[in-house]
Design a protein around this nucleic acid. Structure first.
Lengths: 331, 331
DNA sequence: TGTGGCATTGGAAGCGCTTCCAAGTAACGA
DNA sequence: TCGTTACTTGGAAGCGCTTCCAATGCCACA
């Protein structure tokens, strides 16, 4: 093994200068075609592999992007597990490395440094809290960033996310249209944009059918399953015949609680969620839900990030439509 | 924002040389205590953040490790989702960045380069196939590596994994001890060490009770759920009263197929698995399983990697004992 | 034949940091 | 008092790569 093959070695072996070698390998213009080909051939035969650190240092930008996740990272069967998977894939397709930063709400200093200096030339953020530390820090550090799922017009950051309003209206509408008269909801934290929109969608579905929302059926949760499980008790006390969970975890919690109370789902209670993380043919329940097109979202986010890294100042939000999945928790 | 604060800036502001500044910030010996403190104070007030690329280039090693995953990455609710989560956490605790390389069986050239040169100073590998490309390449490239879950004495690589033999014997023993007489199994790919061990454990449990294994109840799978679902059909045709899936995904598939056939679990058929990825109080079924202590494994792997990066030549395997979880798929 | 212009190329200057090495200094024992 | 040792420090040399800039060679054209 011994020493590393450096660009110098390649240049020497090919009989050109290091500058020319570099240009050849990076497909820069200004190299005669035959020279370029020769250099590339030599590099290959020598097994040359550019040192990424040196390249980053000299070139000013690396080919690694970061993925910042809120909470403790990909809790199994969660929204985040899928995000990780799809973003990793998308990054890889663009020949970008993916630096994963989980548990982002309490980043250790060391890891934060990784993000802020040098190693990473862009970041995809999918954190849970609104207006959080991370976004501000990234903006302050002037490092290219794209948000997944936090569309909030006030922050001047490019965002890719699922369409929340109409899709929530759609799934709630399905509940209403299949006979539910008292549809309750466990919302997400309403200071979050997506949570707020889903709640608006819930109301919108009622309005469109000229139905009143009974506010005693509305409980503000925080997208956390255990919290939703707590809230399910008082909610079920109100005798709803349908529940919309603002995410699948919340819907699942309500389902659980309902079953434990001996309710028959969906005959006595319909349950719908949002995210589509339980549209799994092998486990129960399969929750009726708006399925986020995660692949598309991840690809969109990575693509947008590449643009931003390339200098784009576009800070628009991109909304991607989910598809409804009819599971076995609704009629 | 403007310029980046460099070490030079700090040194100048603190009235020392860059060398001293560097030593101070890295807590190297050979700096007077008051000087060190002053430098650190100045650095902080200037908001100095070392450029990781430069540090890597100059120092020869980075503070990022890679995590190589086989298959398409963290499929939700899978073994891998948990691995990602725990390794990320463990790395973060050691102030290491985590570069995620999913879909490792077909790594794009670019991403592979990331691993092999510079950016990463060590790798944790959790790939599915035995004797795979990755391991060989990493060994050849002489980059510090630790394997999760592929203990195989022939490859001289440090390994951390769950204890497979006795634990499989334990869970299968549970089936046998709760009345099952015909316990079948869907194994993993038997050319893999862990799969082979679990299968041996399955046989061992029988031997210890002086029971014969009916080979027509043994089907070789590949840890994949869909494949297991296919195999479940002929397996169930043999009228087993218990099934051991070599991983939870396989057990789940059998469970599914059994339910679809109208079998009552666990009354007519007990199902047990391995991994503990379905010990979730909210979804069904909760499969009886050997629960891998993922956190411990991840911490162990990262710890081992740190040792290897530090020069250790220890290539031993570390086996960590799982705990049995009694779900509702067994009596 | 002379000259400007263009395409290629090599030299060299860093990117920001670590670390070897030699120089400077203070403290110690004889 | 002076030589020694033990610490601290700064200078400087890179780590491997990109890229600016000047130099070269070649062509077309007048």
């Amino acid at each position: 093994m011994g020493k590393h093959v450096t660009l110098d070695d390649v240049a020497r072996a090919a009989g050109v200068s290091r500058a020319t070698a570099s240009r050849s390998l990076n497909n820069r213009i200004g190299v005669r075609e035959d020279v370029r080909r020769n250099v590339q051939k030599v590099a290959k035969s020598l097994g040359y592999r550019p040192n990424q650190a040196a390249r980053t240092l000299a070139g000013g930008s690396s080919s690694v992007i970061g993925l910042v996740l809120g909470s403790a990272g990909p809790r199994s069967y969660s929204y985040e597990a899928v995000i990780v998977q799809e973003v990793a894939k998308a990054a890889s397709e663009s020949d970008l490395g993916l630096l994963l930063v989980a548990d982002a709400l309490a980043p250790s200093q060391g890891v934060r440094n990784l993000l802020s200096d040098g190693l990473v030339s862009g970041v995809v953020v999918s954190v849970v809290a609104t207006r959080n530390q991370w976004v501000n820090e990234l903006l302050a550090a002037d490092i290219p960033s794209v948000l997944i799922g936090q569309g909030e017009s006030e922050s001047p950051i490019r965002t890719v996310e699922v369409e929340n309003l109409e899709s929530s209206a759609e799934v709630v509408g399905h509940l209403l249209d299949t006979g539910c008269r008292r549809v309750g909801t466990i919302t997400g934290p309403l200071n979050r944009y997506d949570a707020a929109m889903r709640y608006r969608g819930y109301r919108l579905a009622h309005e469109r059918r000229s139905l009143e929302v009974d506010d005693s059926l509305v409980f503000e949760g925080d997208f956390d399953r255990d919290r939703a499980y707590e809230l399910a008790a008082p909610l079920l006390d109100q005798n709803p015949d349908g529940v919309f969970g603002a995410n699948d975890q919340s819907a699942l919690a309500v389902y659980r609680r309902a079953i434990e109370r001996g309710l028959v789902v969906p005959d006595q209670l319909s349950v719908a969620g949002f995210d589509g993380s339980f549209a799994d043919a092998y486990v129960s329940p399969r929750i009726t839900s708006m399925v986020q097109p995660f692949r598309e979202i991840a690809r969109g986010a990575v693509g947008a990030l590449i643009e931003v890294m390339g200098g784009s100042n576009d800070v628009s939000s991109q909304y991607i439509d989910p598809d409804i999945f009819f599971g076995d928790t609704t009629r």
